[in-house]
């Protein structure tokens, strides 16, 4: 008997194991809803190890992605930053072009309205002193300029050429204290002289009996010998009528924003 068992030991062991497995399987099929103790133990034992491995791999992957892989990311970041600043610069340039285009279009529209030949010029410098109001433009006698020519923008009168060199000219702004422009108030047709006061203008010799109201448009009268008639100078910002005297005090807000002066037009009148 023992000899027989010994002879078929391996086959018998295999059959027993298979049978045991089959029994276990059969038992598991019956109790499918419950987890066997064995599985629970195995799960319990493997859980911390799995967690450890998982977190280690994750840390490694994290390290790889965020530090070692950053060699490329850093380069990519630099490229993106460069592209970003290039695009920003391009955007700023295009915005500048758009604004210049807008200003030049306005000047062009204005040029078509004015009957005189005009010369566009660029403001390149301002007065060296805080007490005077002049600007330097990039056109001079070589371009046909001479002293006393009116300088305008689409919004209105800027000033007149004061000193002219071959390639540059200085323009006396109407806001300078020594500037005087013959004007009339558009609604009431009152005449006067607009003098500069630094930031704004004052209308001298406006008769007290004339009706002038804040908001009235002030234009060149064409009688001063420099500016053609009808160019906007500014709007009345305030007026005071004393109970006596011949004239009233009138303050005028210039039509042109002199702090943003960039392109101007010089009206080329014929020499008298």
């Amino acid at each position: 008997m023992f000899d027989l068992l010994k002879r078929y030991r391996t086959a018998l062991l295999a059959c027993c194991l298979a049978f045991a497995a089959l029994l276990l399987y059969s038992a598991q099929l019956r109790n499918r809803q419950e987890t066997a103790l064995f599985y629970k133990v195995i799960l319990q034992i493997t859980a911390p190890l799995q967690n450890l491995i998982d977190s280690s791999v994750e840390s490694l992957a994290n390290g790889w992605e965020h530090y070692l892989w950053l060699v490329d990311t850093e380069a990519e970041n630099r490229q993106l930053l460069e592209a970003n600043s290039r695009l920003k610069a391009e955007l700023a340039r295009l915005e500048e072009v758009r604004l210049a285009n807008q200003r030049l279009r306005k000047l062009l529209d204005f040029k078509e309205k004015v009957a005189l030949p005009v010369l566009p010029a660029q403001v390149v410098a301002e007065d060296a002193s805080s007490w005077f109001r002049t600007v330097v433009i990039d056109k001079g006698s070589k371009d046909g300029l001479r002293e006393g020519l009116p300088v305008v923008v689409a919004e209105g009168v800027v000033g007149r050429t004061l000193q002219v060199s071959p390639y540059q000219s200085r323009v006396l702004l109407i806001t300078d204290a020594s500037s005087a422009v013959a004007v009339l108030v558009q609604s009431s047709r009152s005449r006067g002289i607009c003098r500069g006061e630094g930031e704004q203008l004052t209308l001298d010799y406006a008769l007290r009996r004339e009706e002038i109201n804040p908001g009235d448009q002030v234009v060149t009268s064409g009688t001063g010998g420099i500016f053609p008639k009808g160019l906007p100078v500014g709007r009345v910002s305030a007026n005071y009528q004393a109970s006596y005297g011949l004239f009233q005090t009138v303050k005028v807000e210039p039509a042109v924003d002199f702090s943003r002066l960039e392109e101007v037009l010089v009206l080329l009148r014929e020499e008298r």
């Binding site: 007490w131 204290a177 020594s178 500037s179 500069g196 630094g198």
Partner: peptide, 11 residues
């Protein structure tokens, strides 16, 4: 020079 004194006094 007009009212340059006014401009100077202001600043």
């Amino acid at each position: 020079a007009g009212a340059i004194w006014l401009q100077i006094i202001r600043v």
